[in-house]
Simulated assay, not measured.
Amino acid sequence: MSCSDDQATPNDALDALDDAAAAAAFRRLVRLLQHRSDAANIDLMGLAGFCRNCLGDWIAEAGGMDKETGRTIVHGMPTADWKALHHTAATPEQLARMEASMAKNPHH
């Protein structure tokens, strides 16, 4: 799965959002994704074009760390442990939905 490196339009309301508020909202999102292990990454990719791994990769990029460290932050545990507990093989339908969803993401 490949994650989009979507960038916001400069000077929009999101850029004007206080960093503390943005961080609090992001932490709430990550905690919800940690709690909702029933929401599979392949389904998140198919619906929204991003998943837990994408968020971890974005953290890694923004924080100057390796991808595994970023993904561990998002999963709340090492990626291998999360996969062992929650990962199921994707169906052809899920893969097709993910590809169609990813095609809608902006690429920079």
Rank of each mutant, 00 (worst) to 15 (best):
M1L: 06
S2L: 03
S4L: 07
S4C: 03
D6M: 00
Q7T: 05
Q7C: 00
P10D: 05
P10T: 02
N11Q: 14
D12K: 03
A13E: 11
A13R: 10
A13Q: 10
L14P: 00
D19C: 04
A20V: 06
A23E: 09
A23Q: 10
A23L: 06
A23I: 04
R28K: 14
R31K: 15
L33F: 13
Q34P: 15
R36H: 14
S37K: 15
S37G: 15
D38F: 13
A39N: 13
A39Q: 15
A39L: 15
I42F: 02
I42V: 14
D43H: 11
G46A: 08
L47T: 13
L47V: 15
G49R: 03
G49P: 00
G49C: 04
F50N: 02
F50Y: 05
C51G: 15
C51P: 02
R52E: 01
C54T: 02
L55E: 07
G56L: 11
D57M: 10
M65N: 04
D66E: 13
D66F: 02
T69M: 14
R71I: 09
R71V: 05
T72W: 10
I73W: 11
V74R: 10
V74H: 11
G76M: 10
G76Q: 10
M77T: 07
T79L: 09
A80L: 01
A80H: 09
A80Q: 09
D81Y: 05
D81F: 01
W82H: 11
A84N: 11
A84W: 03
L85Y: 11
H86N: 13
H87P: 00
T88D: 11
A90N: 06
T91Y: 02
E93A: 15
Q94L: 04
L95V: 14
A96C: 10
R97E: 10
M98H: 02
E99N: 11
E99I: 09
A100E: 13
M102F: 07
A103E: 11
H107P: 00
H108E: 09
H108R: 00
H108D: 11
